[in-house]
């Protein structure tokens, strides 16, 4: 029984990582209808941002979020305005552009670091909390907590603020929103910026857990796609619960079947959900089509 509880805890904490990475990805898809392949690279940049803040300003990676988050927001807004906005109305080209961005970011960091792997240490690194026989690393608890807070805060922001309502209006029908006086282009830019900032936040919080490499973003993006499909395309709540479900699935499959099979089990579930419920657990029916439908 202890064994099961332990592996469930591991799964939930892993789910927190996936949720944190996926929330921004799903927001971008929900509003702008772009599958952002470069989202993992934004996470990677967040990690390197935490590293840079540590070696230059001696900042703990958790404190570095106050610098890295806004920096990634600015980068995301810039990327949208300069690269994606001119491709408005060409969704496939936008997807290809994010893939190109992925390669640019990855190879630029590669050139700057020479492929050397770096680590960031926090004052909390190495601390564990024990619940009876279960032992959990404190940095992972913080990630799950952050994912929960971010999901709740983003949900409140979208539901209760004028700007959030404008984002939801654009997500539902950009043409109607424009007719109501919403500055759609600005909403897109801000949404992409928020998505990138959330990735930057994830990067900072994850940096004490991983050894950084320029390719690490790719490791996150594949499961993140499974998360958003499972949870529901465009749904912030879906990204959170999708992340937890994917984390639990991986942990249970890895422990009770074979760690080498956990990805196979995960993507088997991914395909089943695609076939049986294309909108995901919390998604809006038709969202997966709207994402590919040209809107002008």
């Amino acid at each position: 029984m202890t064994e099961l509880v332990n592996i469930l805890a591991v799964g939930l904490l892993l789910g927190g990582i996936y949720a944190l990475v996926s929330v921004g990805l799903n927001l971008i898809f929900g509003v702008i209808r772009i599958v952002n392949f470069a989202q993992g690279e934004f996470v990677m940049l967040g990690m390197y941002g935490a590293f840079a803040a540590q070696i230059t300003l001696r900042l703990d990676p958790y404190v570095a979020t106050v610098l890295v988050g806004p920096a990634l927001f600015a980068l995301g807004a810039f990327v949208y305005w300069v690269i994606l906005r001119p491709l408005q109305g060409q969704p496939m080209m936008q997807v290809f552009a994010t893939f190109g961005l992925l390669m640019i970011l990855e190879n630029t960091v590669l050139a700057l670091t020479g492929g050397t792997a770096y680590s960031v240490n926090s004052g909390l690194t190495g601390y564990s909390v024990s619940f009876g026989p279960i032992q959990i690393g404190l940095p992972r608890v913080l990630v799950l907590t952050a994912a929960t807070v971010v999901t709740l805060a983003l949900g409140w922001y979208l539901k209760s603020t004028m700007h959030g309502k404008a984002i939801r209006a654009v997500a539902q029908d950009r043409n109607a929103a424009r007719l109501m006086g919403v500055d759609v282009e600005r909403i897109y830019m801000v949404s992409f910026g928020i998505g990138a900032a959330l990735a930057g936040l994830a990067g900072c919080l994850l940096s004490p857990l991983y050894t950084m490499s320029p390719q690490i973003g790719m490791n996150f993006i594949m499961p993140a796609f499974a998360v958003v499909v499972l949870g529901g395309l465009g749904s912030v709540k879906g990204a959170y619960f999708g992340g937890l479900i994917v984390g639990l699935t991986e942990a249970l499959a890895g422990f009770y079947l074979d760690p080498a099979l956990k990805q196979a089990v995960l993507f088997l579930m991914f395909i089943i959900v695609l076939v049986v419920r294309p909108s995901g657990l919390f998604g809006t029916a038709g969202a997966e089509e709207v994402g590919l439908r040209e809107q002008s």
Binding site: E3, N6, I7, V10, L14, I17, Y18, M218, N219, F220, P223, G247, E250, A251, G254, F255, P259, K262, Q263
Partner: peptide, 10 residues
């Protein structure tokens, strides 16, 4: 390329 290997350790 695994994101988590805690299951392997457990």
């Amino acid at each position: 390329r695994a994101i988590d290997v805690t299951d392997s350790i457990l």
